[in-house]
Simulated scan of single mutants.
Amino acid sequence: MRNILALWGVITILIYSGKALAHCEIPCGIYDDHLRIHLLEEHITTMEKSIKKIKELSEKNDPHSKNQLIRWIMNKEKHAKEFQYIVWQYFLTQRIKPINPEEKEKYRKYIKKVELLHKLSFFAMKVKQNVDTKYTDKLRKLLSEFEKLYFGKKESYH
């Protein structure tokens, strides 16, 4: 019985270990901010491709195209949601620290970062609601602004 319980415990850990891919809130100091920016860029590109495929498949009326259309819609939704998760859970929750308003310049930058993160999340929501690449274009522009502000001009990833 003990061996069965141990085996069950190992199986449970293996099943749920895939859910622990996101960086946790433990202050371990292991962060890769550049990687997160790159992931956001990939999500934007994927959302954009999904939009293009949705438009293309919407013109067809066969069952296979309808099936593929639904899959691309779900893909767009998934990547917009993952984009928002990185924006809020990684950057806003863990990386952007509140600043004392008396520290005028630091506080101004803090407010601008929070504003850009909010806009990024908002336009990811607009991607979910629409099939217009103007929203992915807007995400790219906002992400570039955020990246420059977050890293500074000298440390920018690109």
Rank of each mutant, 00 (worst) to 15 (best):
Q129S: 04
K113I: 03
V127K: 09
S58F: 00
K109R: 15
K126R: 15
I73G: 05
L92G: 04
I4C: 04
M1H: 01
P63W: 11
E48P: 00
G9W: 08
A124T: 06
I54H: 11
I4T: 12
L5R: 13
V127T: 03
S58P: 06
S65P: 03
G18F: 07
Y90Q: 07
V10S: 02
K52E: 15
L116F: 03
L21H: 14
H34R: 15
L39P: 02
F151S: 05
M1E: 03
M47C: 09
S121F: 02
L7E: 11
I54K: 07
T46W: 00
K148W: 03
L142A: 09
K141M: 09
Y16N: 03
S144A: 10
I70H: 03
K148L: 09
L69R: 11
V131M: 13
N130A: 08
N75I: 09
L92M: 14
Q89E: 13
N3E: 15
E56Y: 10
P98K: 01
R95S: 07
V10N: 07
K141Y: 04
E48A: 12
W72A: 05
Y31N: 00
P27C: 02
P101N: 05
A80M: 08
S156W: 05
I26G: 00
L116D: 08
P63G: 12
K138G: 03
S144N: 12
K128I: 15
